[in-house]
Nucleic acid binder design. Structure first.
Lengths: 221, 221
DNA sequence: CACTTTTTTGCGGGGCACGCAAGTTTTTCG
DNA sequence: CGAAAAACTTGCGTGCCCCGCAAAAAAGTG
């Protein structure tokens, strides 16, 4: 077996990562068990054996801790996408990367799914959850840009954003209906790649640039 | 002068709506002026002339109040989409509906844009902002479903979701670069409808299955 | 004008997030 | 090695937020 894990990272760094991981995990576990409103920061901290104050050195809110799992995914996503062969069509690469990433994550587990379903009712979480997805989206956009060679950053963001849309929709469908996640995901990505012909009823579209200059907006967005 | 405004809605209802609107507006105005962290609930309430406690009868957080403008859009979006002619291709209808909705909103105003840019840095807001978009997304999905005749609800959600993605991306681009919003929006929606050919470089895609069964983990999504 | 229904408000409680200033490690270096 | 430097943890105190509750005020009803 391997002799010593050569600690590339200073002991400090390892401890830090471990603490963060432990806190996130505890937060998620407790939340799934009791529901977010019945988990105090103190509980999470105690579970891990640190002071409540320390919790806030790592996360600025409970919600953030619970959702940090989602954020951590961006790393894997990035690697998976960059690992795809050079000549492969972009949509195929993205699809495979996404599927790869979600394949390596656990088995559904009934009770677990049920809990998640409840969790998503928690508005507090939804905001942070979406926020986390937005973070992944960013990384994905960058990676796509790198992959296609830095053209049109706007479109890269659009693609990343709609891919994450597909993921979210598939995910929601999964825990609401118990249909398997991956097939749905695959299907949705294919639809995206084709402009959703199934819905729009064929290919009668006209890519005709329309340059109408209309007034603009006020309000937040 | 006009005789009597026939108050379809009981006086009560009007007051309620007005209060809500006033609170949201005050919240947004103050936040744009000073930044969210320098606005207390008390300030907003005082501005409108109600007690702080009353604020929480309308909104469960400052963030929610600020972002309620976004949520209110779903109504207009729904109407605009349903108003499109019957035979029109779906993507065209959606595009026009979205553009219509965003056309009817006020003038940009430099300083205003700058403020918004800052605001989006506020993480507190981003979560609620995305949440608001999610609400719009829901309504949009339903409306699309109604429009196409209730087929495949999953795809409707995907479409709604990716349309909102386009809106968000266009919006971010707008306040980050000062490029006009509507043309960008239009372009992105066209790209979506065509499967983003500009990025993917044409239509040469070939499905190549890759079955990597990797270990399992557990995570939120 | 009494009577009902709905909304507003004050009060109080439980928590959360964070700045600050000690304590405690870990790391660096002479 | 051993002491100074850098980084992390912790307790404490503060300000604010969200909400339940019950009394007061306002709007609708006949």
């Amino acid at each position: 077996m391997a002799p010593d894990e050569p600690p590339k990272l200073t002991l400090r760094e390892r401890k830090k990562r471990e603490a963060r991981r432990a806190l996130a995990q505890a937060a998620l576990r407790l939340t799934l068990e009791r529901g977010l409103e019945n988990v105090r920061v103190e509980d999470i901290a105690t579970e891990v054996g640190v002071s409540p104050r320390t919790f806030n050195n790592y996360f600025s809110s409970k919600e953030q801790a619970v959702c940090s799992v989602v954020v951590d995914r961006h790393e894997g996503m990035r690697e998976a996408l960059l690992a795809r062969p050079e000549g492969e069509p972009l949509w195929e690469s993205v699809k495979q990367a996404v599927i790869h990433q979600y394949s390596r994550e656990g088995e559904p587990d009934r009770a677990y799914v049920a809990r998640i379903r409840e969790l998503m009712g928690q508005l507090m979480l939804r905001g942070e959850f979406l926020n986390a997805h937005a973070a992944v989206e960013r990384v994905l956009a960058e990676t796509i840009a790198k992959r296609v060679g830095g053209v049109d950053h706007l479109l890269c963001r659009l693609m990343a954003s709609s891919v994450e849309s597909a993921v979210r929709v598939a995910f929601v469908n999964w825990f609401m209906t118990d249909e398997p996640l991956l097939p749905t995901l695959e299907r949705l990505l294919d639809e995206l790649a084709a402009g959703m012909p199934t819905l729009t009823g064929g290919t009668d579209r006209k890519p005709e640039p329309n340059t109408t200059t209309t007034p603009l907006g006020e309000s937040l967005c």
